[in-house]
Write a protein that binds this DNA or RNA. Structure first.
Length: 479
DNA sequence: TTTTGAGTTGTTCGA
DNA sequence: GTCGAACAACTCAAA
């Protein structure tokens, strides 16, 4: 029989023991609380490589989390296998009365949690879940008609109207930490090799999992948050918070970030904080969209757009993936992604727009490529971003709004600093030509030390012609 | 129910 | 170089 006096906290994408809703709920009960993290093979088996930056990040965060729990006398049971079987089995073995976890909104996770809940229920064990990774979820922000929003701005206005200290306050986990229970660590140790993965070089990239790293990034960002609005669009500048990967795995709490941004946004000079808060609201928005419209995982938010006959030229797609389209801003962006697992937000828009509207490749190909490589990959945000860029999503940009990769480059990397960082072959180009190096004369190319077509590719497509082609493609669907 | 105003991030053209 | 309009109509949200 389950022991009503103990429970199990199941960590997933909430790898911290401060300000954690489900952990707080578990510790607020009467009994002992065991903690577990499962390296879920149903997820890990889908990864393209055994050397994955996300897995290394999770591993580092898990090790840190175990250390934090140990300070209060607990520890983290770490297991490897299919979570939907492991969690019910562990709950039975520990004889707990309840399993606690935080909500996950991805369709596959929802299905997994339903399966776990059914198995637990059959054994008389409760499965208790909490909202944790967003400020407002599901149906908390609705139109006056009681329906979910599908346009961002009115959603954001309603969000800002509703938010207050109550929704932004931290869950005081520390107060109850004495209830943490210690469990034997068998059968799995804590090494990355134990789950069949190798280090992926995070340290060399200056990335580290865990809450301490997240806190450091946040403190640094707060020093420049006032300038966020003016700097965020320039990939060569240190504008963004770089917290996305930490938000993805929950090594920092969204409440902690949103609370600080909200307070500052209402103060003097709070414009930067207000813009950043908007980005956090976008995050809530896309989780809400995914909850209400799970079909976006496989197709367009507006199904009519699934009829677009994308030519899907494999060679063009490969050139895009490898950063050799001949458009420097696109190629530099893709090499940043390939080298580091990160891509600046402005560049995500430029690269996505280019793949879809210049190379005429199905947005889902690009979505998948990003999903496999982004350290901060999140299904809801990545899907929303791609559908926005492809003009197939809710509140997407209009189909005729097509980024010009040269204009964008001139505007947001005016002196070519970012391009030179990732395309050393173009380092000798002057700021006037680096955005469109094919416009250099043969003599200029020799002077710059780069021959177009040899040292750096000629443009894969001509933008003006590509623009006309994609407008035609959309025209067919609209008729 | 009907009407009205508005909509993340742009580009191009012509004056 | 700078500016406004057109792009092309549509859907959403609120009055």
């Amino acid at each position: 029989m389950p022991d009503k006096d103990s429970s199990l906290m199941w960590f997933r994408r909430d790898l911290r023991c401060t300000d954690n809703a489900a952990l707080h709920a578990a510790l607020s009960g009467t009994g002992r609380v065991y903690c577990v993290f499962v390296y879920d093979t149903e997820i890990l088996d889908t990864l393209p490589s055994r050397s994955d930056r996300r897995v290394e990040f999770i591993w580092q965060s898990v090790v840190e989390l175990d250390g934090e729990l140990a300070k209060s006398g607990g520890n983290l049971i770490t297991l490897h296998g299919p979570a939907r079987q492991i969690i019910p089995a562990l709950a039975l073995r520990l004889k707990v009365g309840a399993v606690y976890a935080n909500h996950d909104y991805e369709p596959a996770a929802v299905a997994r949690d339903s399966a776990v809940e059914r198995q637990l229920a059959a054994a008389g064990i409760e499965f208790l879940t909490r909202k944790d990774q967003v400020i407002f979820e599901k149906n908390e922000i609705l139109t006056q008609g009681g329906t979910p929003f599908s346009v961002f701005t009115p959603y954001k206005n309603a969000w800002l109207k509703k938010v207050d200290d109550f929704y932004l306050k931290a869950y005081p986990v520390e107060r109850h930490a004495a209830s943490l229970a210690r469990a034997s660590r068998e059968p799995l140790g804590l090494a990355l090799a134990d789950i069949g993965f190798e280090p992926a070089g995070l340290k060399a990239l200056g990335i580290a999992g865990g809450r301490a790293s997240a806190r450091g990034l946040f403190a640094d960002f707060l020093k420049r948050i006032d300038r966020y609005g003016a700097t965020r669009d320039f990939p060569a500048k240190k504008g963004p918070s770089y917290l996305s990967v930490h938000l993805r795995f929950g090594t920092i709490s969204i409440r902690e970030l949103a609370h600080e941004a909200w307070i500052r946004s209402r103060g003097r000079g709070g414009e930067g904080a207000a813009i950043w808060l908007s980005e956090l609201i976008w995050r809530d928005f896309y989780f809400m969209i995914l909850h209400h419209h799970p079909h976006v995982v496989s197709g367009a938010f507006r199904p009519a757009y699934d009829a677009i006959p994308w030519p899907n030229d494999q060679a063009l797609f490969t050139a895009w993936c490898e950063g050799r389209t001949g458009y420097p801003i696109v190629d530099a962006a893709m090499r940043q992604l390939n080298n580091s697992g990160y891509m600046h937000n402005r560049l995500r828009m430029i690269a996505a727009s280019f793949l879809v509207k210049d190379l005429l490749v199905d947005w889902r190909w690009g979505e998948k490529y990003f999903a496999d490589r982004l350290n901060d990959f999140d299904l809801a945000a990545n899907n929303g971003g791609w559908q926005w860029a492809a003009s197939t999503g809710c509140d997407a940009q209009p189909y005729f709004r097509i980024f010009n990769p040269v204009t964008q480059s001139e505007k947001f990397d005016p002196d070519g600093t970012f391009i030179r960082r990732y395309l050393p072959e173009l380092a000798g180009c002057d700021a006037r030509h680096i955005h469109a190096p094919w416009t250099m004369t043969a003599e200029q190319q020799r002077a710059a030390g780069v021959i177009i077509g040899e040292d750096y590719p000629a443009p894969a497509v001509e933008h003006a012609a590509a623009r006309a082609r994609v407008l035609e493609l959309f025209k067919k669907v609209r008729q």
